[in-house]
């Protein structure tokens, strides 16, 4: 019971905090440089791991599917199947998990350390609202970066599948692309994937900035908060993925 009320009050605090962060976002259009800087450190620095992971996931998918499909003589549909898996599920979900591990943890640690070293208090005493100047740009950068990263994950995954399927296993290149073109629907598949990754971006960034801002301002407190960010956001992404999939493709 006590654990439950503890969790609920924390959730309440996190929601109030999210409200404050949202209220700070309109201000950012005047200072978009702050956001661009954060998109670099949040997004661009996660790009490498996302691309490498996307490439391998695409290649493995192609291998696995090729052997199954070849027993039905349906290897022409390889491209389409890989594309659907990536765009609908794996792109948004795996990219979000990687994002939580790479960018989310870094965000929490950075904000937590700023709190522990009194940088946030220092800003407050300079009459600068740290939620507006420090938190909101980081949150927004996460929300912007996530769909882009997921898209790049899927894109390079398809190229990986192409190199394995077409170059290595001998699937017809024309069939690979034309099946994708014919069967993958923009609204049904691509747009839904983008919506998913947008939602995941919001969730992971929210958890990351809140954990940092709310942490106990000591080395141990920051370490715990960082771990919590990765654990909570991974679980939240997986649970949310189930909900969204159920709604979108009931």
């Amino acid at each position: 019971m006590k654990v439950l009320t503890g969790m609920l009050t924390r959730l309440g605090r996190a929601s109030l905090f999210l409200g404050k962060v949202m209220a700070g976002i309109p201000q950012l259009f005047l200072r978009f440089g702050l956001v661009v800087k954060q998109v670099y450190s949040v997004g661009v620095q996660t790009l490498f791991i996302t691309l490498v992971a996307g490439l391998f996931v695409g290649m493995v998918l192609a291998l696995q599917l090729y052997y199954t499909l070849s027993t039905f003589g349906a290897t022409d549909t390889l491209g389409m199947l890989v594309d659907l898996s990536l765009v609908r599920e794996l792109g948004p979900v795996v990219a979000a998990l990687l994002f939580a591990g790479r960018a989310g943890s870094a965000l929490t640690a950075e904000i937590g350390l700023m709190k522990a070293t009194e940088q946030l208090s220092g800003l407050e005493m300079m009459a600068v609202d740290p939620v507006e100047r420090i938190i909101a740009p980081r949150f927004l950068a996460g929300v912007i970066s996530m769909p882009l990263l997921a898209a790049m994950f899927s894109a390079i995954g398809i190229l990986g599948a192409y190199s394995v399927g077409v170059d290595l296993l001998g699937v017809d290149a024309g069939a690979f692309w034309s099946q994708i073109q014919a069967k993958v629907d923009f609204y049904e598949d691509v747009l839904n994937g983008v919506i998913k990754s947008f939602v995941f971006g919001c969730i992971v960034s929210w958890i990351a900035v809140f954990e940092g801002y709310d942490c106990i301002p000591t080395s141990e407190g920051v370490a715990r908060a960082t771990t919590r960010t990765v654990v909570y956001s991974s679980l939240a992404v997986l649970a949310m993925d189930f909900v969204l999939t159920a709604i979108m493709y009931n």
Partner: peptide, 16 residues
Amino acid sequence: LRKKMGMLFQSGALLT
């Protein structure tokens, strides 16, 4: 009001 108050923190609190 805070704009009219300067504070020097024990740790410095510079933005790193």
